[in-house]
């Protein structure tokens, strides 16, 4: 066991853990940030997606030691002063979930997409989001939510 300095949601955390444990487990079990979900442990479902220096990343395949020095954003870090980001707001408006278990990963993947491509086409959304699984099958609503968020961000709302 060793100490690792993580930058999560704009704050510094000294995390005691194992170098090779996953960032997913460190976030969930050592920092109690349980919004990031375990779905498969092999980078196939996207439930564990976080932003690492702004890039959508599978936290289940990222080791704790390799996350040191990176700016990590989890679902808990999006809301500021009770104001939701346009992507969160759009998921609410479109009702783009059923059980909601995939939602944090979906929102973070979509956030990364919109920061890179402010007005994605359907094809670009599908390509970018294809690593995120929604077993309840709300994909059409998620695509609608991403378009809605893109429109809101275009009017100045901060992603």
């Amino acid at each position: 066991m060793a100490d690792f300095l993580l930058h999560v949601n704009g704050r510094e955390f000294h995390v005691r853990g194992f170098a090779d444990e996953s960032l997913l487990f460190a976030l969930r079990n050592r920092l109690n940030l349980t919004g990031t979900k375990y779905g498969c442990g092999e980078g196939q479902c996207g439930a564990c997606t976080v932003l690492l220096n702004g890039k959508a990343t599978h936290s289940c395949l990222t080791s704790l030691s390799s996350a040191v020095g990176a700016q990590i954003t989890t679902i808990e870090g999006l809301e500021r002063h009770e104001v939701l980001t346009p992507v969160q707001e759009a998921f609410l408006e479109e009702g783009a979930y059923q059980c909601g278990y995939c939602t944090p990963g979906m929102i973070l993947s979509a956030t990364a997409l919109l920061r890179e491509l402010p007005h994605p086409t359907d094809e670009q959304i599908v390509e970018h989001m294809n690593g995120n699984v929604c077993r309840c099958g709300t994909y059409p609503r998620i695509i609608a939510a991403i378009h809605r968020a893109a429109a809101a961000a275009g009017k100045g709302a901060s992603l």
Binding site: T74, L78, L84, E89, F91, L92, Y97, G100, T103, I107
Partner: peptide, 11 residues
């Protein structure tokens, strides 16, 4: 719904 888009809901 808000608890689901903010990660607050505890599964």
């Amino acid at each position: 719904g808000r608890d689901f888009v903010t990660g607050k809901h505890r599964y």
